Computed example of a mutant assay.
Amino acid sequence: MIRRFGAPPHKNQTYRARPGAYALLPHDGQLLLTCQLQPEPDLQLPGGGIDPGESPLPALHREVLEETGWKIAAPKRLGTFRRFVFMPEYDLWAEKICHIYTARPVMPLCDPLEPHHETVWLPLADAAAVLGNAGDRYFARVLAGLA
């Protein structure tokens, strides 16, 4: 059974499964995050949807590059969680199945490619407290040894 974070699903709402790959990217006591600025600022683990026919690891590399501009290496799976949300940018009610990895940020290649995203570095313990969803916060706490 996959652990759920956040609100339970609405009883009369249909949700579409949306698998995604997300990364905890620690370096020198800091964590590389992305801030999605619209519709309102939200600190997130870099990552996103796995496209049809795509495997999780290529999706992880692609999404981290799109949202932070960074190249990563040595991803290792940490766990999975799910959450039920409305995604306004897609007009979609989704059951997000979030595959969480740790990886090493290697180097910045460019500015974030995804519109309305900016790269943020925070101390690991601070990130564990302020990430925008409970699942991301939980896995940051696990990485920091706080959970």
Rank of each mutant, 00 (worst) to 15 (best):
L33N: 10
A147Q: 12
E40F: 10
P88T: 01
F84D: 01
R141C: 07
Q38L: 15
R4K: 07
P58M: 07
I100C: 04
A134K: 11
E40R: 10
P26I: 08
E66N: 14
L131S: 01
A21C: 12
A17E: 14
T80A: 05
R82E: 13
R62A: 07
L143G: 12
L33C: 09
V130I: 08
Q30R: 15
A73H: 05
E40Y: 13
T102P: 02
I2M: 07
E66V: 08
M107T: 11
M87F: 01
A125R: 13
G29R: 07
P8L: 09
A125K: 15
R3S: 09
P56A: 10
T68N: 03
N12F: 14
E40W: 10
G6D: 13
N12G: 15
V130C: 02
T34F: 06
W93N: 10
P39E: 10
A94F: 01
A129Y: 00
G29T: 14
R77T: 08
K76R: 11
P52Y: 01
L37N: 12
Y15W: 14
L57M: 07
A147D: 15
E118M: 11
P46A: 11
G69E: 01
E67M: 05
G47T: 04
K96N: 01
D51F: 03
Y138Q: 04
L146P: 11
P41V: 15
I72P: 04
P19Q: 10
A7P: 12
A125L: 14
D126A: 15
Q36A: 15
G132P: 02
L60G: 12
E40N: 09
L24D: 06
R141E: 06
D91F: 03
C35D: 13
W121A: 11
L122N: 10
A74N: 08
N133R: 04
Q38I: 12
R4V: 10
N133A: 06
I100T: 04
V120T: 14
D42R: 15
